[in-house]
Amino acid sequence: MQSVNGTIPLDPLPNDGALSGARENNTKFSRLVEEAWSRFSSTRYTGFFLVLPALLFLGVWFIWPVVSMIASSLSAHVVDGVTVEGFTLENYTRLFSSDLYFRILARTVRVALLTSICAAVFAYPLAIAISRGGPSLARLVTITILAPLLVNVVVRSYGWQTILNKTGALAWALKQVGIPHPPALLYTEWAVLIACVHVYLPFMVMPLASAIARIDRSVEEAARVAGATRLRVFLKVILPLSLPGLAVGASLVFSLSSAAYVTPQVLGGNFSPLLGTLIEQQILTLNDWPFGAAISTLLIVMVLAVNLVFLKIVNRRFARWTEAAR
């Protein structure tokens, strides 16, 4: 150290001065670059640039179509097969004045809600098996749950049709165990519900499994040591702590099943249509685009409202748990 300290004053000063001048210029430039970069990368702009590609894509392919759909529901209505142009609320008054449409709307909400609830009931044991079971069990359950997604939903719906048919597999099985005249399932709400639960179950299991996997195992163990049975551990620890996952799953399943078209069409037929079927009829069969657009708008608003209310409730609860030290 001492010898190094000794050599510094011996350095030729003029040379050093020239160097430092150049270095100063250099730093000035790099500081400018740095400033520009930091302005560019400041949180306000970075966020914007990161979102831009998705924003452009959604703007062109989602937001614009939705806006034009809403516009078309307000700018024309069809009377006796003839389109009348001009601003109108006629499509919406028609939607709310008819008992038929209200029944279909109610059925859609009912099926979507029941699907979410049933899917949650089936999903919890599966999610626990995935997140808490051994690795081979977890893999097996995951594959079994995800495999149906590889099969087209049309094919699966027809599969359910052959099972739920009056002479189908289920009726045959019931006959074997001594129920000769089982109630008809096909073309009822029940058939739609059963198939919807099957089709949308993975969307409930996966977020639930990841939420449960995030729960610290020792928290469960602490509950058990403190005297909780396994059922109590589920009700008091796993259930409340997995609510964020349940919220995501329920919101996915509700949205998907309320907008479902193929499954209700194949299994519910015209006896038990949902909003999707109604929209298809208005647009493709009756050629009434403005009214179809109005029903679609109603569907979007309904799904959005339910999701927002739901997430709001869950978020408020969850925020309380993570309340930071203040």
């Binding site: 020792s218 928290v219 163990e221 609860r317 748990w321």
Partner: peptide
């Protein structure tokens, strides 16, 4: 427990 394992909710 080592990480306290309190019930966060």
């Amino acid at each position: 427990f080592q990480n306290y394992a309190l019930f966060p909710h």
